[in-house]
Write a protein that binds this DNA or RNA. Structure first.
Length: 959
RNA sequence: GCGGAAGUGGUGAAAUGGCAAACACACUAGCCUUAGGAGCUAGCGCCGCGAGGCUUAGGGGUUCAAGUCCCCUCUUCCGCACCA
C-alpha cells in the first residue's frame, strides 16, 4: 500500500531534489573555454527587469531558450547560456517613494526572489556569469563607453526640445514615446520641454544601421521592416527659396535657424486676407507679385530662356553639357538675391523635379522664420499660436496623421530660385518643425497633402509632370494630383521633356553649382537623448567647471559611484542634484571647484551591451576581453519579445558598431538570429492586474510542477504565436508526464537488468559530429555489433521511435514547432503504452525496452529537465542527462514497410489502399484500379488520365 | 490611409499543393475503487436512422488535386502614419 502511493509522479518531490543536486554542481551549465574543440553556441534570452516576480511571458521566453540550450548541449556544442538583470530604472525609485526602501535594497531583494524562481523552474543558466547592471562593476563600463564616445564626438550636449513625462519626472527618448504618451505610462501625455541634454550620435551610423539590415537574414522580416521604417531614410534635395524682401540686413543665409527681425508692417492683416483668398482662385500669385520688393525678380520672364533648347525635348539627358550650360547661366534676380544676402527659406523635398509646380512655400508653425515674421504682427502671431496648439493637441492624441489641415498666409513672398517666380509663404499645421528643414515647397499638382491644402485655400494647382503613355510620349491629360515618379516634365522651362528621375539629378546639380541647394539625405531617426533626471541609473561621468567648461571624468577615477542613502523625491529635478558631496568636486583640469553632471543615463544604455559582458563577466580592467568576445560573437540565437524590435535592438546594433570602431570587437552586428516569441494571453486578453487575469508562475509550479508549466508553455502553441493560457492544459501535460513516469518506472528494472549497454538494432553505426545530427553514433567505447533487423512489436515501436527522433531533431534545426515536438513524444509514449499488455507479457527484449525508454527520456530532456533527470537515473544511466548524447535517427529503421496511399477519382477521395513500401507508381496504379470502391466509381467510364504521385496518391480522371 | 500577420471543431491547435481536424483540453458513456486535480476503455466537425452528403471567414480563379498558390471582399491583431 505505502509503496503504491509512492509510485505516483510527484514533481513536488522530484524537482526540489534535482534542484539541490544541480545547485551543488555549478559547472553543469558552464560554458567551456574557446580551446575546448567544440563548436560554440551562444543562446541568449532577453534579461528581465527585476520587478520582483517572473510572469508567464518570462516562463515562456526562458522555456524556449532553455530547451534550445539543452538540446545544443546534448548535441555536443559548447553552449553559453547566461542570465542577468536589467536592474536600473524608475520602478525602484517609485518603490522607494512608496515604501521608503532604498532602490538598491529593493532591487537586490527582487533579484534574489526572481533568481529563486528561475532556479525552481530549473532553467539551465550559468549563474557564475550573472550580470547585474546596477552594480558598479558593470555600470563603470557604461561610463567608460560614454567617455570613449565623448572623445570620438559621439556623445555631445545640446539644448533641445525634449519629451518630458510628468509621471516619470524625466526626459524620454523619441523611441520611448508611444502615441504621444509615455511608454511606461500609457495614459500620461508627454510634454515638450527645452532642456540641455546629452545625446549619443546614433545618426552617425544611420546609413550603416539601415544597410546592414540586409545582412540580418536570421531576423524576422517584421523586425527589419520596423527598423527600416524607424530609421526612415529619405533621399531628396534641399533648395533655398529667397525671401523677396530682407528681414534683416545682417543675417539670413541659414535655413530653419534663420534669425532676424521681421519688418512686420507689410504682413499686417495678411492673415485675414488668406481666408478671403479662398474664392480668389489663383489670386495669390498676383498677391505675391505685387508685394515683390526685389525689382530684379520682376524681370524673371526676360531672364528665363524659356524657348531655348539646352537639350531636346524627350532626348536623352546629356548631363555633361547640360550642367555647365545651366550652371554658367546668370540670372540677374538670382545674383541680386545672393549678393544682397536675401533671407533664404530652405525647403526639403524628395520631388525637386516638380519644383516648377510649386505654388506656395509652407513653413512649420515653429519654424524660426515664422517667429520673425510675426514679431510685429500680433494678429498673425495669434493665428500661428493656434496652429501650434492644434499640432500639439494632435501630437498628444497620437493622431498627427488625422489633423485637419489649417494654414495662414503670411502675406510674404518667396522666390523660386529656378525660375524667379514668386510664391506666397504660408504657415501650416501639417508641417513638422523637426523633420527636414521644417519648410516645404507646396506642389498641389503632384502631392496629395498639398493638393488637399491648395483646394481648401484656393491656391493655384499647376501640372508639371505628365504621365508617359505606352508609346513613351507625354500625355498632357492626367488626374491631379498625379504623384507618380513615372512621368516627364512639362511647364518646366528648359527642363521640359526630362524624365522625373533624370530631372531630379539635373536640378540637384544645378542647385549646388549655383549655390542655392544640394542633394540631401534625411532620416527620421534622431540622435539618442540619454540624459535622465533620475537617481537610479548610471551617473554620467562629466564635470562642469567655470573655468574649463565641460570636463570628462578621468578614466582612472571611474566609476563615478551613485551615492547611497539619499532621499528620493520626484520634485525639483534630479535627486543627485541635492547631494552636495556628489555634486561638488574639484575640476580634474584646474583643481578648482566644479560640479558634477547630476543626470543619469537612460537604462537602455545598460541593455545595449550587457551580452558582451557575460562571457567575461568578472573582468575588472576592461568591459571584456576582445579575444573572448571574438570567440563568442555574434550571438547565435537571441530570443525575446517583439516589443523590443526598435528600442533595445537598434540601440544594441548601434553600440556594437561603436565598439567595433573602438577596436573592441570585429563583428558588425551583435545577433545572427533573432526570434520573437508571441505573448501569453488569458481569456483572449493580455494578462494584467487591472483585468484580473494574471496567472502566477509560482502557483503553476506549486500545483503542477515546473516541468508541466514549462512544457505546457511550449505545447499550447508554436512559439512565435500568442499563447492562450488554459490551466486545464497544464493539468493535461502534467498527466502526460505522470504517464511517462509510470511507464519508465514500470519497466526500468527490466532495462537496468542488462549489463551490456550496446544497441542491437542499429544499422548504420558511425560516429558523427555535432553538425551531423541525423547520422547514427555508437555509444562511447561500445563495440560495433552486427546489425539485426527487428521484427513484430520491436520493429513497430522502434520505427515510431526513430520517426519521432527525426521529427524533433529537424524541428530544433529551424522550424521550432515545439508544440508538435511535444505532441510527437506523446504519440510515441501512447504507442508504447498501447502495447502494455504485450510488454507486461514480456514481448520485448530488454535491450529494445531499454532503448525505447532511454530515447523517450532523452527526447523529453530539453522540455522537462527535472523528470528527464529523475528517469535517467531511474534507468541506471550515469552522468547528467544534459550531457548525454542526443539520440540519432536511423533512416533505415524509421522507414515504413507498408505504404498507405489515397485514391481519388476526379480529385475526390474514394479509397485508401495499401501496398508494399517499395512499390513503384505502376504498382500503385494497379492496386488502385483493383480496389472495389474505385471499381464501382469508374465502372462504365473511361479513365482519361491517371496521376500517380509515388508514395502519396493516385488520382484517376474519368469521363 | 499604407504595410504586415492571421482567420480551421465547443477550446488550444495539426497538416513540404496530395487522406482536413494529428496531439491535447473540454464534454458524453462505461469500467476501476486507493473516491483522485487519479487510472483505464470507447465516443466526440456539421447534416442524416442510414447509404451518403457537406465542411478550413465569404466570393471568384489556377490545378488532375487548394486550408495551403493568385485576385476581390469581410473581420481581428500588429507596425507605420500629413516624415515633404
Amino acid at each position: 500500500m505505502a509503496e503504491e502511493i509512492e509510485q505516483r509522479y510527484d514533481p513536488a518531490v522530484i524537482e526540489p531534489k534535482w534542484q539541490q543536486r544541480w545547485a551543488a554542481d555549478p559547472g553543469l551549465y558552464a560554458a567551456e573555454p574557446a580551446d575546448c574543440g567544440k563548436p560554440k553556441y551562444y543562446v541568449l534570452e532577453m534579461l528581465p527587469y527585476p520587478s520582483g516576480a517572473l510572469h508567464m511571458g518570462h516562463v515562456r521566453n526562458y522555456s524556449i531558450g532553455d530547451a534550445l540550450a539543452r538540446q545544443m548541449w546534448m548535441r555536443g556544442y559548447n553552449v553559453l547560456h547566461p542570465m542577468g538583470w536589467d536592474a536600473f530604472g524608475l520602478p525602484a525609485e517609485n518603490a522607494a517613494l512608496k515604501n521608503h526602501t532604498p532602490p538598491r535594497e529593493w532591487t537586490l531583494a527582487n533579484i534574489a526572489a526572481m533568481k529563486r524562481q528561475f532556479l525552481r523552474l530549473g532553467m539551465g543558466f550559468d549563474w557564475a556569469t550573472e550580470v547585474t547592471t546596477c552594480m558598479p562593476e558593470y555600470y563603470r563600463w557604461n561610463q567608460w563607453f560614454f567617455l570613449k564616445m565623448y572623445e570620438k564626438g559621439l556623445a555631445y550636449r545640446k539644448k533641445s526640445k525634449v519629451n518630458w513625462c510628468p509621471e516619470c519626472a524625466t526626459v524620454l527618448a523619441n523611441e520611448q514615446v508611444v502615441d504621444g504618451c509615455c511608454w511606461r505610462h500609457e495614459d500620461t501625455i508627454v510634454e515638450q520641454r527645452d532642456l540641455v541634454q546629452w545625446f549619443l550620435r546614433i545618426t552617425a551610423y544611420a546609413e550603416e544601421l539601415l544597410n546592414d539590415l540586409a545582412k540580418l537574414d536570421g531576423w524576422p522580416e517584421k523586425v527589419r521592416t520596423m527598423q527600416r521604417n524607424w530609421i526612415g531614410r529619405s533621399e531628396g534635395t534641399e533648395v533655398d527659396f529667397f525671401l523677396s524682401e530682407k528681414v534683416d540686413q545682417g543675417l539670413g543665409t541659414e535655413g530653419p535657424g534663420t534669425r532676424g527681425e521681421g519688418t512686420g508692417n507689410k504682413g499686417q492683416g495678411s492673415g485675414v486676407r488668406a481666408r478671403g483668398s479662398e474664392s480668389e482662385g489663383a489670386g495669390n500669385r498676383e498677391q505675391g507679385t505685387e508685394r515683390q520688393a526685389d525689382p530684379a525678380a520682376a524681370q524673371r520672364n526676360d531672364d528665363l530662356p524659356m524657348g531655348s533648347q539646352i537639350f531636346q525635348r524627350n532626348a536623352d539627358l546629356s548631363m555633361g553639357t547640360a550642367i555647365p550650360l545651366l550652371s554658367a547661366r546668370k540670372d540677374s534676380w538670382l545674383e541680386a538675391a545672393q549678393r544682397g544676402n536675401a533671407v533664404r527659406i530652405r525647403v526639403f523635398t524628395t520631388r525637386v523635379d516638380t519644383i516648377f509646380g510649386a505654388t506656395s512655400v509652407q513653413l512649420a508653425p515653429q519654424h524660426a522664420l515664422v517667429a520673425k515674421l510675426t514679431a510685429d504682427n500680433p494678429a498673425l502671431k495669434a493665428q500661428v499660436d493656434e496652429l501650434i496648439e492644434q499640432q500639439k493637441k494632435a501630437r498628444e492624441a497620437g493622431d498627427l496623421g488625422a489633423i485637419e489641415k489649417h494654414g495662414i498666409a503670411t502675406g510674404r513672398v518667396a522666390i523660386n530660385p529656378y525660375n524667379g517666380q514668386p510664391v506666397p509663404i504660408w504657415v501650416a499645421n501639417y508641417i513638422l518643425a523637426d523633420y527636414g528643414t521644417g519648410a516645404i515647397m507646396s506642389v498641389p499638382g503632384h502631392d496629395e497633402r498639398d493638393f488637399e491644402f491648395a483646394t481648401k485655400y484656393g491656391l493655384e494647382i499647376r501640372q508639371v509632370i505628365a504621365p508617359v503613355s505606352e508609346s513613351g510620349t507625354a500625355e498632357d491629360e492626367a488626374v491631379l494630383p498625379f504623384v507618380s515618379e513615372d512621368g516627364v516634365l512639362i511647364n518646366s522651362g528648359e527642363f521640359d521633356g526630362l524624365k522625373s528621375m533624370d530631372a531630379q539629378m539635373l536640378l540637384q546639380s544645378v542647385a549646388s553649382s549655383r549655390g542655392f541647394g544640394e542633394a540631401k539625405v534625411t532620416y527620421r531617426l534622431k540622435d539618442w537623448g540619454v540624459s535622465r533626471q533620475r537617481y537610479w541609473g548610471t551617473p554620467i561621468p562629466m564635470i562642469y567647471c567655470d573655468k574649463d567648461g565641460i570636463v570628462p571624468v578621468p578614466e582612472e577615477q571611474l566609476p563615478v559611484l551613485l551615492p547611497e542613502a539619499i532621499e528620493i523625491t520626484q520634485q525639483g529635478g534630479s535627486p543627485l542634484g541635492r547631494v552636495g558631496e556628489f555634486v561638488n568636486v574639484t575640476c580634474p583640469k584646474c583643481g578648482g571647484p566644479a560640479k558634477r553632471e547630476t543626470d543619469t543615463m537612460d537604462t537602455f544604455v545598460d541593455s545595449s551591451w550587457y551580452f558582451y559582458r557575460y562571457p567575461d563577466a568578472k573582468n575588472s580592467t576592461a568591459p571584456f576581453d576582445p579575444k573572448i568576445a571574438k570567440y563568442w560573437f555574434p550571438i547565435d540565437q537571441y530570443i525575446g519579445g517583439v516589443e523590443h524590435a526598435i528600442l533595445h535592438l537598434i540601440y544594441s546594433r548601434f553600440w556594437t558598431k561603436v565598439m567595433r570602431d573602438l577596436g573592441l570587437i570585429t563583428n558588425d552586428e551583435p545577433v545572427a538570429r533573432l526570434f520573437t516569441q508571441g505573448m501569453v494571453i488569458k481569456d483572449g486578453a493580455k494578462m494584467s492586474k487591472s483585468k484580473g487575469n494574471v496567472v502566477s508562475p509560482d502557483d503553476m509550479v506549486a500545483r503542477y510542477g515546473a516541468d508541466s508549466a514549462r512544457m505546457y508553455s511550449l505545447f499550447a502553441s508554436p512559439p512565435d504565436r500568442d499563447l492562450d493560457w488554459q490551466e486545464d492544459g497544464v493539468a493535461g501535460v502534467s498527466r502526460f508526464l505522470g504517464r511517462v513516469w509510470r511507464l519508465v518506472t514500470k519497466y526500468s528494472a527490466l532495462a537496468r537488468s542488462i549489463g551490456d549497454h550496446s544497441h542491437p538494432f542499429r544499422t548504420n553505426v558511425q560516429t558523427a559530429g555535432p553538425s551531423t545530427p541525423l547520422r547514427y553514433a555508437q555509444e562511447d567505447g561500445a563495440p560495433e555489433r552486427e546489425a539485426r533487423k527487428p521484427e513484430g512489436l520491436s520493429l513497430k515501436l522502434l520505427r515510431k521511435m526513430h520517426q519521432t527522433t527525426a521529427k524533433i531533431t529537424l524541428d530544433f534545426e529551424g522550424r521550432w514547432h515545439f508544440n508538435t515536438c511535444v505532441a510527437a513524444i506523446m504519440e510515441l509514449v501512447n504507442e508504447i503504452q498501447g502495447a502494455d499488455a504485450q510488454l507486461a507479457a514480456g514481448a520485448l527484449e530488454p535491450q529494445v525496452m531499454r532503448e525505447l525508454l532511454r530515447t523517450v527520456v532523452l527526447l523529453l530532456a530539453p522540455f522537462a529537465p527535472y523528470l528527464a533527470a529523475e528517469l535517467w537515473e531511474e534507468l541506471g544511466e550515469e552522468g547528467a542527462v544534459l550531457r548525454a548524447e542526443w539520440p540519432k535517427s536511423d533512416p533505415e529503421l524509421a522507414k515504413e514497410d507498408e505504404l498507405e496511399f489515397a485514391v481519388q477519382v476526379n480529385g475526390k477521395l474514394v479509397s485508401v489502399v495499401k501496398v508494399a513500401a517499395d512499390a513503384d507508381g505502376a504498382a500503385m496504379e494497379a492496386a488502385a484500379r483493383a480496389d472495389e470502391r474505385v471499381q464501382a466509381r469508374i465502372a462504365g467510364k473511361t479513365v482519361v488520365k491517371a496521376i500517380v504521385v509515388p508514395g502519396k496518391l493516385v488520382n484517376l480522371v474519368v469521363k
